[in-house]
Design a protein around this nucleic acid. Sequence first.
DNA 1: TAGATTGTTAATCGATTAACAATC
DNA 2: TAGATTGTTAATCGATTAACAATC
Lengths: 223, 223
Amino acid sequence: MNFQEPFRGGAALSERPPERLSLGVAARLSRYLQVLTQAKKMGKETISSQELADYTHVNSTQIRRDLSGFGKFGKRGVGYNVDSLVSQIRKILRTAGQHNIALFGAGHLGRAIASSDIFADHGFRVVAIFDTDSSKVGEEVTGQLTVRTYDDVRKVIEEEDIVVGVLAVPTEAAQKVADDLVAAGVKIIFNYSEALLQVPPEVTVHTSSPAVDLLYALYFYLT
Amino acid sequence: MNFQEPFRGGAALSERPPERLSLGVAARLSRYLQVLTQAKKMGKETISSQELADYTHVNSTQIRRDLSGFGKFGKRGVGYNVDSLVSQIRKILRTAGQHNIALFGAGHLGRAIASSDIFADHGFRVVAIFDTDSSKVGEEVTGQLTVRTYDDVRKVIEEEDIVVGVLAVPTEAAQKVADDLVAAGVKIIFNYSEALLQVPPEVTVHTSSPAVDLLYALYFYLT
DNA sequence: TAGATTGTTAATCGATTAACAATC
DNA sequence: TAGATTGTTAATCGATTAACAATC
């Protein structure tokens, strides 16, 4: 970033060349966004970099640095306006639009994910939930979602313009679902099972589990 | 690390001074461990740094570098023995022992976490699950676990030597449970709700959600 | 041996932090 | 004004990567 900025506080500051964010910056911005979203729900109007630091465990200088790279969003002596910071970060992360996702597996994890607020909070819409267990098909999961038969996968993916498949199925079943998603043209798979999925290079798999963090975090907490 | 090592392949290499790992190294080692554990289940005996790289999205040179910092675990031309690498990493992360954890909330997320293999795989034992909903008390969650009444929290934490509290409760209920855990002396809280918890400085809160990753990962996948 | 893969170097790049003037 | 907090600098530290000799 060697672009010399001779003006101060200009609105033009928010229109930077769309460089790809580094992995670390994007991860931290997402984290700030999560905290800000919650802070907003709690009725907080402004927040300081120190408060954000307390909640995210990211150094407060780092936070100010991350943000100031995109514009002067704060007020000295006051902090950041929660509402405006949320929309600024959304702009930076380009998560302003709506994205449709499909959920596989109507077990406990699938239902937990389906009923989480966090997707709606960030512009993601769970438009379908599938299960191979025919006794579950037709069950209502949330107000708007009903478990669909796995036979309709292909049709639903095309009709509903689904860009992400989220796997909350048993480890043994994950590869088969991944194969079907790939065949239907889905390029992004979120894998909450423990399976090591084999997919073609153009498809991205992100594996994550509600429990893996524990291992890593505990190293620091127990030593 | 400026310790000059004149010998090769010695067993003494695994006994390094117990420096605290950097955050990044610990996170990556945990990830390797997760993949290795699964690879072992699938009957794999050796694994190359390139295969580990494919599954973890960590550069293969980085992986070899991370591991070689603690000893010469691999065989040139062959790769790493899965079994022995698992135990080496466990030694490094000091997760060889057993740690008892308590789970709060017997809803979908709580049950999903309780029935996950991943805790058992890494030496954690869910020894209790609580819920304030009296209609859930007594229900069987897994073979060994039955939902307990929240009134017994304090007693159970002391009797069962619980070091970690895992919160899978609604956002509104999270702070109350955190307060009670702090009062009972628990120093590590894993928060799967969206609440921004207030705790004394000696207590560590790790907030995480099965859905937050999506936001960050999607930035890269959609751009 | 021939092929494969580790262990390690060297060079680069980005992350982190303390400190403090600017300013609300 | 006085206190608080941002924006930014400068200096350090650790992460990342390509490349390749060592060696299984």
